[in-house]
Amino acid sequence: MLILYALMIMPIVRAFDYSSGDDASASLTAVEGFAPMWAWAIFFYLGALVLAYGVRARRHLIVYLGHSILAVTYSALAVGILAASLTRPWLDGVRGASVLILPTLMHWLIWWRTGPAPIKAGEAVTVEKVEGPR
């Protein structure tokens, strides 16, 4: 649950940062060419709020939707920053893209693992096996 809460708080902090000012770093120029920073903030706020509501209401599909929004938003942001850094000397800005890798992968992993519908209790198969040398 601690990881899930962190995955809800991180996009809110990022959205607040993007919505609080116009002084974006040089690594965000390609991202700003696609959409202004306040628009990115809306997607981060939306994803975090949908995810938080889904967790609070215990609605599997809404949690799945929240992870979907955040996974796509983080992915687009990471690709935009990485693409801009590849054209600069010394890969200036690659650190900004690398920071986004972990939350991006976590949202995609949880999105893939949970699926749009929960696993039914009768359909789950548990296999426990301990093997060693014979």
Rank of each mutant, 00 (worst) to 15 (best):
Y64F: 15
G66Y: 05
T87D: 11
R88C: 00
I42S: 09
F16C: 06
A97Y: 04
I12N: 04
S75C: 06
D23M: 05
W112L: 11
P89M: 10
S98D: 08
A57T: 09
I3W: 02
T87G: 14
I12P: 00
A83P: 00
A57N: 04
W40K: 04
A78H: 01
R88D: 08
I119T: 11
F34W: 11
I3A: 08
E131Q: 07
I42L: 13
W112C: 03
V50D: 01
G66V: 06
H67M: 10
A52C: 02
A35H: 11
L28A: 14
A41S: 14
D23H: 12
T126I: 14
Y18E: 12
G122F: 04
M37K: 13
A24V: 14
S19D: 07
A35E: 05
A84E: 12
L100D: 07
G33P: 05
Y74P: 07
L100S: 06
M106L: 15
G47A: 01
L70V: 06
R95P: 00
T73F: 03
P103V: 07
A78S: 06
D17V: 12
A52G: 09
A26Y: 14
L2Y: 04
H107S: 05
F43C: 10
F43I: 04
E131D: 08
F16D: 02
Y53T: 07
V99L: 13
A121V: 13
M37F: 07
S85K: 06
W38M: 02
R88H: 13
L4Q: 02
S27E: 14
T87F: 01
V94A: 12
S85N: 03
K120D: 13
I81E: 05
V63E: 09
A52W: 01
H67A: 09
S75Q: 03
F34G: 02
K129E: 05
L91C: 01
D92A: 14
A15D: 02
T87C: 00
L46N: 00
P116E: 10
Y74G: 08
M1N: 00
G115T: 04
A76W: 05
A76T: 11
G122I: 07
P89G: 14
A24T: 12
I119C: 09
D92G: 10
A15V: 02
G122E: 15
L70C: 09
G47Y: 03
L51F: 04
A30Y: 13
F34L: 15
A30P: 01
V63C: 10
L4A: 07
V72Q: 00
I9T: 11
M1A: 04
A124K: 14
V55Y: 03
D17K: 09
